[in-house]
Amino acid sequence: MKKLFALLLAIALLTAAFGAVADGWPAKDITIICTHGAGGDTDYNARMISRYLEKKLGVSVTVTNVTGSNGNIAMNQYKDGDNSGYTFVMTNTAALVGNEVTGVSDFTYEAFEPVAIYGRQSGENIIVMADSPYNTLQDLIDASKAAPETISFGISTGGGVYIAATILNANGLACNFVDQGDANSRLVALLGGNSQVTDAPYATVKEYIEAGQVKSLCTLLGERPTLIPDIPTASETVPDCVINTLYVCLAPKGTDPAIVAAMNAAILDIINNDADYAEECLSYNLQAPWALSVEDTLTELKNQRDTFVKYLELF
């Protein structure tokens, strides 16, 4: 009884706190700018959370795709955009942090008021053909050391895949890294025998892994995803090799911190408590929903940027 009372009190206090600072928000419709095109994972996650936000906040939440330059067009346009609390930007951390590090943009997450990291991608996987002699990342590293520069590894320059390759290279993987374009083209190259190893999002190669044509050596995520627990992580072999592509919600610079906090609370509530959302998220991202508070979001973005910068200096 005491516990229940304490919980009720806490909820009442929290509601009161938000009620006091973000009074009357949201009073009108919210626009979400998605930095990537319709059909991709960034768009899917932005639209998924927006549908639930609409129910939760009681106003219409519209997603508009403004695309180009790995999200930089939209981010550049909206970083100093309408900061009244009714415009938000949804993107992924590889674009937000990676664009600055690789020189595509001249600003980083600090140009925005980060609201929340609200999800994890199904994860990039290092894949080989099913009949390949390599079964683990360690096998691959050993083989590459025995005959340096002979195993060709398909990558795309810039972005998470590139950074992963740089980290692996610095930790002993002596492959011949060849640019083979986007995930789909890299898969084509692997299937056509134009590369022996490549790196692709799990969602892109799912049907090939299930059909037994391709096998995954490891995922680049920091932790094994809920639905595919039998795939090891790269960090079990090379501790630094973690590429967590996370979905993040940002507000234009100067947005009222109280509104940022209220939006974060709304997102966290959906992520932590909505069973329907959990189910949808699990089937698309292959892992349970997950989100961070405003502070943890900032810390995570800083960590990602630090790792990226550390390894890019190697080149």
Binding site: G68, S69, Q77, V104, T157, D179, G181
Partner: peptide, 22 residues
């Protein structure tokens, strides 16, 4: 015009963000 393939360098963008997307 825009970001070059492979190494994502800017070409003929004349400092315009819109041109960056090509």
């Amino acid at each position: 015009v825009g970001l070059s393939p492979i190494d994502s360098r800017m070409r003929y963008t004349f400092g315009s963000v819109d041109m960056q997307a090509g």
